[in-house]
Simulated assay, not measured.
Amino acid sequence: MWRNIVSNFLTLLIVVLVGIAGLVAWAKQQYEGPGPLTQGVCLRVEQNATFGRVSQDLLAQGAIASGYIFRAGADYEGKSGSLKFGSYLIEPGSSMRDIIKQITAGGPSTCGTELNLRIGVNAQQLILRELDAASGQYVEKAKFDPVAEAKPEGFDEAASKADVRLRITLAEGVTSWQVVEALKSADFLKGEVAKVPAEGTLAPDSYEVRRGADRAGLLDEMAKRQSAILAAAWENRASGLPYETPEEALVMASIVEKETGVPEERRQVASVFVNRLDQGMKLQTDPTVIYGVTEGKGVLGRGLRQSELNRETPYNTYVVAGLPPGPICNPGRAAIEAALNPDSTRYLFFVADGTGGHAFAETLDEHNRNVARWREIERQQKSQGSGN
Rank of each mutant, 00 (worst) to 15 (best):
V6Q: 14
L10D: 08
T11R: 14
L12M: 11
L13H: 13
I20W: 03
A27N: 01
A27Y: 13
Q29L: 14
E32S: 10
C42R: 06
A49L: 13
F51C: 01
Q56L: 06
Q56E: 07
Q61E: 12
A63D: 03
S66Q: 01
G67S: 05
Y68T: 10
R71W: 01
A72F: 04
G73N: 05
E77G: 13
G78K: 00
G78T: 13
S82Y: 06
F85Y: 13
P92G: 02
I99Y: 08
K101F: 14
Q102N: 07
I103A: 01
A105R: 13
T110D: 08
C111Y: 07
G112C: 07
T113I: 15
G120N: 08
V121T: 04
L131A: 13
L131Q: 12
L131H: 03
V139A: 05
E140F: 15
K141N: 12
K143R: 08
K143C: 07
A150I: 04
G154A: 03
D163K: 01
V164T: 11
E172M: 03
S176C: 06
L183G: 10
L183M: 03
D187N: 15
F188V: 09
G191D: 06
A194V: 13
A194H: 01
A194I: 05
A198D: 07
L202I: 00
E208R: 06
R210T: 11
R211E: 05
G212T: 15
A213T: 10
A216E: 04
M222K: 12
R225Y: 14
S227I: 07
L230I: 00
L230T: 12
A231L: 04
N236W: 06
N236T: 14
G240V: 11
L241E: 00
L241C: 05
Y243I: 14
V251Q: 02
A253K: 00
V256L: 13
E257S: 10
E259H: 05
V262W: 05
E265S: 05
A270L: 03
V274H: 14
L283V: 02
T288E: 02
E295Y: 04
G298F: 12
V299Y: 13
R302K: 08
E312C: 13
Y315I: 10
V319A: 07
V320H: 12
L323W: 11
L323T: 05
R333W: 11
R333P: 09
A338E: 02
R346T: 08
F350K: 15
G354F: 02
G354P: 07
G357V: 00
E362I: 10
Q380I: 00
Q380N: 07
Q384V: 04
G385W: 00
G387M: 12
N388K: 01
